[in-house]
Amino acid sequence: MVQAFLSCVTTGNVKVQWNVCHALSNLFLNETLNLQDMDWAPSVFSVLLLLLRDSSNFKIRIQAAAALAVPSSFYDYGNSFSDVIQGLEHILENLGSDQISAPSSFKYRVALEKQLTSTMLHVLSLASSTDHQPLKDFLVKVSISKPSFLEEWFKMLCSSLGESATQPESENNFENQKKQMISKAMRSLIEVYGGGNQQTIAKKFKMLDNSIW
């Protein structure tokens, strides 16, 4: 079944590719699969990252990003966890350079950015649970670069949080959920950097986290 899904990605039309991403999202929800033990899992994650990076259809990219956020622990990503984080970081960093050829794609741009943000926050919140050194080295590398993409990205997210006192209750709930997701991801990174003797970087993220509460 999974091989049929993967085949459809390369041979199917836009609707078929979207359906494949949706089907894989549902497949990831089946905890009895022991996803991390499946020999086809790396191929599935690679295909989703490929669609998210290269598809010209924004609805497919949104669904691929949503599927990548379904696994609930870093164990479920298996050996692909590091690849998923690195792939998402690269896509986010280069999102602004995307060429949008179809006018109909513009209205999906914001939705794609929101889903990418949600997916990235989800996987980063799991980063402190793994001892995978190449992943930690990567997270340090992107945080000591000038300018630091992750630091600037989190600053942007923190500044996008509204003043809850002036918003309706429904919007307050959404803002609180968003704040919690951002904080959880930053605290995960603080653990990664603190454990890797990168106290200066950890301190910057601590200050950011404190600023939103």
Rank of each mutant, 00 (worst) to 15 (best):
Q3W: 12
N26L: 04
I182D: 05
R53V: 00
A66M: 04
L121K: 10
G195I: 04
Q17T: 10
A127C: 05
L121E: 05
A23R: 05
E171M: 09
D39E: 13
G195D: 04
E93K: 15
L95G: 02
S82G: 07
M38E: 14
G87Y: 14
I100N: 02
I91W: 04
S125H: 10
K59D: 09
S46K: 15
P103R: 10
T166Y: 14
M181L: 06
S43P: 00
N176P: 00
L68N: 06
V47W: 06
L6H: 08
V192R: 11
V142F: 08
F45N: 02
T119L: 02
L33H: 12
S56I: 04
C21T: 08
D39H: 13
S159W: 06
H90Y: 14
S145W: 04
R187T: 01
M156F: 09
A165H: 10
D98M: 12
P168L: 08
V20K: 06
S148A: 11
I190G: 03
D76I: 01
C21E: 01
E113H: 08
V140G: 02
Q115F: 01
L208N: 02
Y77H: 09
R109C: 04
V44P: 05
F74G: 00
I144F: 09
K136Y: 05
K203C: 01
M207H: 09
I182G: 09
M181T: 01
A67Y: 03
Y75N: 11
K204M: 03
G96I: 05
A4F: 08
T166E: 07
